[in-house]
Amino acid sequence: MELFWLASASLLAGFVDAIVGGGGLVLVPALFAALPTTHPATLFGINKSASVWGTAIATLQYSRRVRIAWPVMLPAAFAGLVGAFAGAWAVTVVSPTFLRKLLPVVLVGVLAYTLAKKKLGHEHAPRLSGRRETLAAAAIGLLLGFYDGFFGPGTGSFLVFLFVRGLGYDFLHASASAKLVNTATNIAALALFAMKGHVWWHYALALAVANVTGSLVGTRLALRHGAGFVRGVFLLVVTALICKTSYDAFLR
């Protein structure tokens, strides 16, 4: 029964993650609720062991229907990988506690900006080209990769927002590109958790299958309904993240 509950949560997490990121909002609390005596690092390791497959499959599915700028996004993914390793190392020497109260404020700013700019992300009109676009994407990958390794909540949604706002992508192209970078950051985190023995592989397989199933459904919906649909889900996920992170920071 416990595994069924977690697999259901992983399926929903894969669905949400494939559209706009934020799957950890679903699966991580489910893991803490189902396995309350387990070390948090192990729970995060289980989460990554499932989500890495969902994001990888979503990247593949998007790439078949959406033009991903590979010369731009592959360096961004590598930068994300490096950043995630650096962030994971940093969390061993510096506590991320200060981010708990800052994160809801940042998310409120993201939500307010997106609501105010009603046409934001509806049209795919890249603002940069060539080396400038590659460097900007790599900077975003490095920054959010570090954040993912150091703290983590909302990484996929932040990637989508910065690709829309910073690079001029529409929400569909931004989500497709974010999946590639997020896959790299998940690989880095999973590698570190696995090396330290914080992955329960007997849970990982079942949750990965469920996560991939949800990812396939979410990707198909995003591709079918386009940038406007992804924007709507983005607003819902960011709102949910604000509620969750505010509770963790100020009420817990």
Rank of each mutant, 00 (worst) to 15 (best):
P29S: 04
L43E: 07
A184D: 05
A137C: 10
V237F: 13
L159Y: 07
R65E: 11
L11H: 15
S246H: 00
R64E: 12
L223Q: 06
L205T: 10
F4V: 08
A174Q: 04
F234S: 03
L159G: 03
L162F: 13
Y62Q: 00
V181T: 09
L128H: 01
L11F: 09
T42C: 11
F98P: 10
W89F: 15
G214M: 05
T37W: 10
S177I: 09
A58G: 06
T59M: 07
S177G: 14
K119A: 12
A136L: 01
A9R: 08
R131L: 14
G45K: 01
G45P: 04
S49A: 12
G228V: 11
T155F: 04
C243W: 11
L6S: 12
L162S: 08
A79N: 11
A86P: 09
K244N: 10
F98W: 15
V52A: 09
L111I: 15
T92H: 12
R231G: 01
G23K: 03
R65Y: 07
G24Y: 09
W89M: 13
R65M: 05
G121P: 07
F229P: 05
H225W: 10
A204C: 03
F158K: 05
L241F: 08
G232V: 04
V233P: 00
T38F: 02
F158A: 03
R252C: 08
L74D: 05
V160C: 01
A69R: 12
S175R: 09
A188P: 02
T38V: 11
G156K: 03
L142G: 03
G23Q: 11
R231E: 09
V212P: 04
I57F: 12
D148M: 11
G197Q: 08
Y247W: 15
S157N: 09
T92I: 10
A178I: 01
G80K: 01
T219Y: 03
V164Y: 00
T245Q: 15
R224D: 13
L25T: 04
Y113D: 10
L251C: 14
S177H: 15
N186F: 04
L205H: 06
T55I: 06
W5F: 14
A50Y: 09
G232I: 01
V160P: 00
G14P: 02
V91S: 06
G22E: 14
K48P: 03
G130Q: 02
L120Y: 13
